[in-house]
Nucleic acid binder design. Structure first.
Lengths: 245, 245
DNA sequence: ACATATAGTGGCTTACAGCCACTATTAAGT
DNA sequence: ACTTAATAGTGGCTGTAAGCCACTATATGT
């Protein structure tokens, strides 16, 4: 069915402000692994409401300039970190009459994974106060603005859950990495040890990484460096990683 | 940090209509298994825009009366089907400048699973035209309003994906069911045969159902009837179901 | 009684994760 | 030069849950 005259007329007379609509925003958990822990980026709110409180970065959709919701998320990420091509995943949407003191409000939560070598970039981008904080610390003894604690929890649980059966942590290590470094990243997120042999079999059999030809040299036997293969997205395993009992 | 005077003042002067906000709605894929296929409920749009086209049931958040987004979804479901306590899961949120001709628009997609014995109820609830259509048919040769085809696809893929490692189809069979009936439901969604013995082991070992004590009698050996155990949510298996090669 | 049909099981095979000890390869210390 | 420490990487067995398929069990219909 195509547009007829009555539809054209309807659209001409349509005015958004005739309706009560919720506020709609995007909030993100930007994760990285630094200093041996999973950390999340927080900003200190520079405006009302919740002025001065720590919060997840986010903001309203820019109706004039954002073509899509994903674009809004990417824009926010770039504003805070300077990072352009992260792993970005939509997690869930939270909406209620009470989560924002201003109005009925809806927020779409995303998480982004950026590797620790990208995070230099963030410093000079914005004048806001911005910090990296270990997720565990935030979950246990921080108080974030609005329901951001709850949102962060949802993002963290999604991440932790997916690490059981995907190769997501590849996006948290630098472009070239050793298997031991990758395993350590898995262990940090899972909060448990992973068995070396089965980990290596799993990753190698998945056929998602390739040797760079280079080696990482240190104070002992050098290790092969790998990179992500086609830059294709994530691999899904058919079994969960279990780890030693 | 608690509210100070400047925050109170800010909130008093706040007016939603000073800002450009997107329209925000909820759309749902309501699934059931009927006549041996997975079907989805469609409504014929009775209003502009896309008047007369088939669409997923959904609508705007009722700012005055809906406390949460989930409530909006439940309300819509009840309006269309009369069903009160379905399995309801949020799938994803789609937002762009172009998906609705009226305005920048955001929609939160849910799917609901209801069992085939509940669907009597739907008839008299609303005067709108409402139909059950096999999902495969819609995906292949229907044209739905807005981006609803795309939304349906996302819901369908989420469902199909989760059936590999959860017990979701329990919500698509009547309150008491035989293992063979449950297996058939899995097979319909997965679009492949499932091996009888391993299916039964898997479900029984998960400890999520219990015998009712009754039997389903037919034209051959009667089968034990089971019910969902604690009404607890879904079980997650650590391995995907594979099915015969 | 016997055929038919579906319910339900026994017991082997297969796939892949865990386990753990063994070998390999480097830098640093003497 | 040789030894030690340290981390990289592997061989080969065990364990778990899925697949396979033939077998038994229990009803109805004639």
């Amino acid at each position: 069915m195509t547009q007829d005259n009555s539809e054209i007329e309807y659209l001409q007379n349509y005015n958004v402000h005739d309706y009560q609509v919720p506020l709609t925003s995007v909030d993100m958990s930007i994760f990285t692994v630094r200093e041996g822990t999973l950390q999340v980026l927080l900003v200190k709110r520079a405006e009302h409401p919740a002025l001065g409180q720590w919060a997840l970065p986010g903001g309203f959709i820019d109706i004039e300039n954002d073509p899509t919701l994903d674009y809004t998320a990417k824009r926010k990420l770039k504003e805070k970190t300077g990072v352009d091509t992260p792993y970005l995943e939509q997690v869930a949407t939270f909406g209620s009459a009470t989560r924002d003191p201003r109005h009925w409000s809806v927020t779409v939560a995303y998480f982004a994974l950026i590797n620790s070598s990208s995070i230099q970039l963030k410093k000079s981008v914005s004048s806001e106060e911005v910090v990296w904080v270990p997720v565990k610390e935030v979950v246990n003894n921080y108080s974030l603005a609005f329901d951001h604690q709850h949102i962060l929890n949802a993002c963290y649980q999604r991440l932790q859950g997916k690490v059981q059966y995907t190769s997501l942590p590849i996006h948290l290590v630098p472009d070239s990495f050793t298997l031991t470094e990758l395993q350590a990243t898995f262990e940090i997120i899972l909060e448990k040890k992973v068995e070396k042999k089965s980990f290596r079999r799993r990753i190698l059999d998945a056929n998602i990484i390739e040797e760079t030809g280079e080696m990482r040299v240190g104070s002992s036997r050098p290790a092969k460096l790998y990179r992500l293969k086609n830059d294709s997205s994530s691999h899904y395993f058919t079994r969960n990683i279990e780890g030693p009992r």
